[in-house]
Amino acid sequence: MMALTGLFLITFLIVHAGINAMIFFNDGGETFAHWAHFMGTNLIIRTMELVLVAGFVVHIVDALLITKHNKAARPVQYAYSNPNANSTWYSRSMGLLGTIILLFLIIHAAHFWIPNRYNQFTTGEELNLFTRMQDTFSHWYVVVIYVAGCFSLFWHLMQGFKTAFQTLGINHPKYNPLIKNVGIAFSVIISVLFASMPISMFFNLVH
């Protein structure tokens, strides 16, 4: 379940990052607004939005259950442990990274998604998300929070992307390097892309 929902959420990231990248056309957010409007009104997308929310919920709930189960599997901890000798810190910290991402997600949703949908429900009008982005990212602390969120997302993806395949039983000497390298590239591109948005807006590189 973790792997399936994880891969599903990864597809969401692609779409989300793709559309948001439209701001880099530097056309005052025109292209971006076009696609944001499409996303905000298309029936299929709106249905998928519900599936997406469900995906997040399942991913999170399953993670909590597994964590609880796994904690119970070792009631007495080691007095001294040297886990860095056999595994990477981020592979052991998926829960922590995930929690940071969740916190970020709440803040992020409060900035854009919730007000926008609220407005749609109450007035039937969408907000101008581009100007909202410009507003939101004019505060340095917001930018810092977003960058931190992207940082966590990067490490979460570094482990999550490739191991989702492992969990689903896809492990083959011929394809493993491909999965690994695509995973790294994906983690870098998505995270850098996302992080570059608040940064570039803060420094007024996009207008």
Partner: peptide, 23 residues
């Protein structure tokens, strides 16, 4: 517990059993 793919098992296995078995 459940596997969360840290790979520590493979690294510490004295007989080099691979995590590909888990997949």
């Amino acid at each position: 517990g459940s596997c969360t793919n840290t790979g520590a098992c493979e690294a510490e296995c004295p007989k080099g059993i691979s995590v590909s078995n888990i997949a």
